[in-house]
Simulated scan of single mutants.
Amino acid sequence: MTILFISDLHLSPLRPDITDCFLDFMNTEAIHAEKLYVLGDLFEFWIGDDDNSPFNVVIKEAFKALTQHGVKCYFIQGNRDFLLNKRFCKETGVQLLADHTVIDINNEKVLIMHGDTLCIDDIKYQEFRAKVHQPWLQWVFNRIPLFIRQRIVKNVQDKIKEKKQHKKLTIMDVTQSEVERVMRQEGVKRLIHGHTHRPNVHTFNHNSEEMTRIVLGDWYTQGSILEFKNNKYTLQNKSFK
């Protein structure tokens, strides 16, 4: 049994090297897996399921081909693609999961998530997240003409990029107490997430129990994949061609 996890690809027409690496991964590696979990930020920004740009169509076709081949694909929204919804899933065969989802891997309960909600020291971001995740606001935004949405998103991205340059790196990482609280709440000893772009396997003790937090990497300079195979988790890199 092979299960694959990816996140933080930030796919965009401006980075064809990342797109090529992703498509090669889908055609040569993911196609042989039983399941593929995408833990958010697949896209640099997903403006809405009605955006059928040639680039988006290519990505959707890649998922459709994979699910039609029999690979089960699951998606958790990230902070860049929280508008990805039911229409995308219907067109691709991908199943949308809740922000916090507990899955069973080899008889072990494992919590998977994007990871942004663990960064509670970044108060400004959490306030922004709470605002844009309001259903009524998303309903209104999705009914604005596409070209206007593109302008709004470009303006928001520019502001976020500017603010990020002045943030301390520690603020943008997870808060350990929140990690422990969420894992305890969900009743798990293993957590897999992305968002922070800091691939690693962290082990720690909580209430005399060993717990593990696996962090997925981003795809800015190479592909980053977590593979579960032969009862073992392995973080792997995939070079750009």
Rank of each mutant, 00 (worst) to 15 (best):
R213M: 05
Q150H: 10
P145L: 07
F128M: 12
I103A: 00
T196G: 03
K159Q: 15
D218T: 06
E210N: 14
G194L: 06
K168V: 02
I144W: 09
Q150W: 01
G217L: 03
L226N: 05
T212M: 12
E127D: 13
Q165T: 05
Y220F: 15
H133A: 03
R198F: 02
R190H: 12
W219E: 03
K109W: 05
E180H: 08
E180V: 11
K229V: 01
H197P: 10
T221N: 12
I120F: 08
G217Y: 05
F141L: 13
T212R: 02
Y125H: 13
V153M: 13
I120P: 03
V156T: 11
M211Q: 15
D158I: 09
D218W: 04
P199W: 10
E127S: 09
I112H: 02
Y220I: 07
N205V: 09
V132S: 08
K124N: 15
K168S: 14
H195G: 03
I120K: 06
T221L: 11
D158S: 13
T117A: 11
K164C: 08
K229C: 10
V201M: 12
T175C: 12
G187K: 05
L226C: 04
I171R: 00
K159D: 13
K154P: 00
W139N: 15
S208P: 00
D122K: 01
I112R: 01
E127R: 12
I105C: 07
L191P: 06
H166K: 13
I144E: 05
T175F: 07
L226Y: 04
R198D: 04
E127H: 10
K163E: 14
K159Y: 08
V201Q: 11
V156D: 06
T101S: 12
I148E: 12
V174Q: 03
N207I: 08
Q134G: 01
I171D: 06
H166S: 11
T212A: 03
D122L: 02
K131I: 00
H114Q: 10
V156F: 12
I160W: 07
R213I: 09
R151E: 14
V110A: 01
R143E: 02
F128N: 06
I171S: 04
F128H: 10
W219D: 02
V174F: 11
G223H: 02
D122Q: 00
